[in-house]
Amino acid sequence: MLEILRPDGSIVGEPPFSMDETKRLYGAMVSARTYDTKGTALQKQGRLATYASFEGQEAAQVGAIATLRHDDWLVATYRDAAAMWMQGYPWVNLFLGRTGDERGGSPPVGVNVLPPSITVGAHMIHAVGLGWAEAHQGRDRIAMTLFGDGATSEGDFHEAMNFAGVFGAPVVFLCQNNHYAISTPRHRQTASETIAQKADAYGIPGVQVDGNDLFAVATAAQEAVARARDGSGPTLIEAVTFRVGPHTTADDPSRYRDVSEETEWRGLDPIDRVQRYLESLGEWTPEWNDQLAESAAKEIEAAIAEAEAFDPLGPSEIFEAMFETPTPQLERQRSLLVGEPDG
């Protein structure tokens, strides 16, 4: 397992980033944690639909996306808001989606991030098609897809990895092995010793990294992204991390795991260890951290306000995006719903 930044903040080998970039990414993780904490809180107030926390997985998401180009594709899941935001998907869209509004799925033009996949597993092959199409059209954009350990049990994981291998598609598969798929532990998903080793069966490289280590994730991702971009094909990265929170706000982890497991992993927190690293080099101060936290809170609050200012879709609007032009059948149904004379 690749490790660069130890939990105590010391380093083995080379950090993949300059100090400025490391500090920027630390700030990004603080923002992501702020969003995540807020997401859970807002759900408890009834202002969001079910919320899926990614607490503890910030390094895996931020570190991987930091290696992408701004126009690369990202195909991720409901637990990957940090990654999506890093790749340009606005906080307001993420909040809007979680309030239960399709317009959350419409990021600005130029942001090549698909709306989060809610079904588990089917989306990985979409990244294969995206990357494949970019290469087919002579462009060097690549595609990255994020998924969990549970998704590797889905048949579509096999089809995606297999297609990517056969066609040499420019794709990076990033598995966040967070040890639990709702209640099912990692060892009940697969008898494989690692998820990374599954890559062998598809003839592609697989690498396991400490997923709470910003530098290890980024180092592996840099190499995978470079391979994809230069036409050398796909890579599977297994980032070993932990979902310290519940599956979603509808879940109660005490039914299936000992709280000591969460405590142990909180001690391996990905943000804390970057803080220790920066602090050891005199690059972290409480004042700076407060500034980051304050600025993140402001940004998140503004996004919430913007998302909550949207009026819900009206009865007519629910018909408007089924096709480019609604069919006559949809127009008639729309008329029925809005109470106009049946066209």
Partner: peptide
């Protein structure tokens, strides 16, 4: 063979890949 592509035997893969291709500007 780049435009008329023999694929592995995987219907979900064929259709799911076509989906990604369509989003990225092709007409699969």
């Amino acid at each position: 063979p780049e435009r008329v592509i023999d694929t592995p035997v995987a219907e979900s893969g064929i259709v799911g890949a076509a989906f990604g291709m369509a989003i990225a500007g092709l007409r699969p």
